[in-house]
Design a binder for these strands. Structure first.
Lengths: 114, 114
DNA sequence: AGGCTACATGCTAATATTGTTATATAGTAA
DNA sequence: TTACTATATAACAATATTAGCATGTAGCCT
């Protein structure tokens, strides 16, 4: 039953994407590979925190890195990750739009009855 | 800064997808809406567990439900979720293929040196 | 009403995730 | 060697997630 392992792996991938800071890091790496000392100020978190999130993303197979002198340079392994995030954003925006419509309808109903 | 909220929402969505049982539930709902009593045996987990995961998926905006007599029938709200999962599977399979290649290379090198 | 079915929810223990602080490592330069 | 820089890791506390069990609720039937 390779099916179970596949579900596990899929779950792991989504969990790796399930943190705002990690999404932010991946977004920042859209422009290309970056060293940690660039990532840290870009995402606005402490060095050990960023380091651990980078490590997690690497273990999840989302990022890979190489050393260059003192620097460690990270990049996204597979651009499909960007597509996954884009699709998810589309999903979220559609949902937000629905909520806005609902809220507007509710407000209009309130004004009529009030 | 609506940017931060967007990152949060994206993270929440991925966390909602970050569990094998929840992926399994969504996969099962590919064929169309299903009541809880069909979902439970399909995913092979206990009733309260399934119920809680369904509730989480609903809160995340991934599923919606309606009552029909005693039954509660769930369905996927936005087919984009299926696409997100498909893309992720593609990502995972490519990564697995790389690992297989690495392992084969390693084994070949071992055999040459041993 | 009482009993039954299909779900949901509350509680608890186990486990996982996260941020912070302090420390370790690796590479550079003097 | 020493000192410094960039990054990783360890240890800890706080919080979140999860499964399992017990219980609650809502709708149907008699």
């Amino acid at each position: 039953m390779a099916r179970k392992a596949e579900l596990e792996l899929t779950g792991e991938l989504f969990r790796a994407l399930g943190h705002p800071l990690r999404i932010k890091i991946i977004d920042f790496l859209r422009a290309g590979e970056r060293c940690v000392c660039e990532i840290i100020p870009a995402v606005g978190a402490g060095q050990p925190v960023v380091s651990k999130h980078l490590s997690l993303l690497r273990q999840a197979g989302i990022l890979e890195c190489r050393k260059e002198g003192l620097r460690v340079i990270y990049r996204v392994r597979d651009p499909a990750v960007f597509e996954v995030i884009e699709l998810s954003r589309g999903f979220i925006f559609r949902r937000l739009a629905e909520l806005v419509t609902l809220a507007a309808d509710f407000q209009a109903a309130q004004e009529r009855s009030g």
